[in-house]
Amino acid sequence: MKIAVVGATGRTGRLVVDLALAAGHTVTAIARTPARLPRFTHGTPHTAQADVHRPGSLLEPLNGQDVVVATLGSTGRQATTVFSDGALALTAAVRSGGARHLVTMGSAGLETGRLPFAQRVVTKLVVDRLYREIHRDLARMESVLAASDIGWTVVRVPMLKDGPPSANPSVSYDRPLPRAGTATRATIARWITDHLGDPDTYRRLVHLAD
C-alpha cells in the first residue's frame, strides 16, 4: 500500500514510518521540516513538506495515497488548534486525494465519566488540569472526524513512554479500558501499522494500552 505519515519527525511517527517500510509499504514521510527526519532502519521513504495549519500544503503529498496516518503532537500545555486544524485539513485532503483510511491519535483522558472511580478521580484532579487545553482540541478533532464522510480511526492512547512494543496489548473498541495505565510508543506504532486499511476499525475509537 501507499502510506503517508503526517508528523513523521515525532517519536511515534518515526516508528510508524520505519514499521511501514519494514512491511513493504511505499511510505511518504511528511513533516514541517523534512530535514529533521532521521535515518530509518528499514529503508528510505519519500519525503514531503507540509503543515496542517496550511491546509493546501497537504493536497499534493496525500494525493493517491491509500492510508494516511497522522501522529500530530503539541508541545506545552497552552491552548492549541493543531489537532482540530489538522482534522479539517486532513479530511479535506483525504477526500480529495482518494485515501480510504485516516488514522489519528487521540487521548484516553477524554472519556473520564466511564472510567473506574479511582482512575476517574486521578484523571480529573491531575491529568485534566495539566492537559485541559490539549484535551479540548482533541475533542474538537474527534467532532470534525465524526461529521466527515471518510473512513477514520482514532487511537486513544494513555500516557506514552519509550520502550519495546507489548507482546499482548490491551485493546477496546469504542469504550475505555478498565485500567488504561501506560503504553509505549512502539506498541501504538505497531498496532497502527498492523491495522492500516482495516475496515473493522473505520469510524471507531480504539483504546490501546500495554
Rank of each mutant, 00 (worst) to 15 (best):
L59T: 15
H53Q: 13
S57W: 07
P55F: 05
G76S: 09
H46T: 12
S74R: 12
G64R: 09
G43M: 08
G43V: 09
F40M: 08
L72E: 03
P45F: 02
D66A: 14
V52S: 06
Q49E: 15
G76Y: 05
S57V: 10
T44P: 05
L59Q: 13
T44W: 02
E60F: 04
Q49F: 08
A70P: 04
L59K: 12
G64C: 01
R39M: 11
G76W: 04
G43P: 05
Q65G: 04
P61E: 12
G73H: 11
A48C: 05
V67S: 08
G73T: 13
F40P: 08
V52N: 05
A70H: 03
T47N: 02
S74F: 09
S74I: 07
V67F: 03
D66I: 02
L59C: 09
T47S: 01
L58N: 10
T75H: 12
P45R: 06
A70I: 01
G56W: 07
V52F: 03
R39W: 00
S74V: 14
T47W: 01
V68E: 02
P55M: 06
G73K: 11
E60R: 15
T47F: 00
V67P: 04
L72Q: 04
S57F: 02
S57T: 15
F40E: 11
Q65W: 01
R39H: 12
D66W: 00
F40D: 10
H53L: 15
N63W: 11
E60K: 14
V68G: 01
V69P: 03
L58M: 10
R54W: 05
G76N: 03
P61Y: 10
R54D: 15
H53R: 14
T75P: 07
S74W: 13
P55G: 03
N63Y: 07
H42Q: 11
G73R: 12
G73I: 10
P61I: 12
A48I: 08
N63P: 00
D66S: 11
E60L: 12
R39F: 05
H42S: 15
P55C: 10
F40A: 06
G43F: 03
R77K: 13
A70F: 02
G64H: 06
L59I: 15
A50P: 08
P38Y: 05
H53C: 06
S57K: 05
L58E: 09
L58S: 08
G43W: 02
T71Q: 03
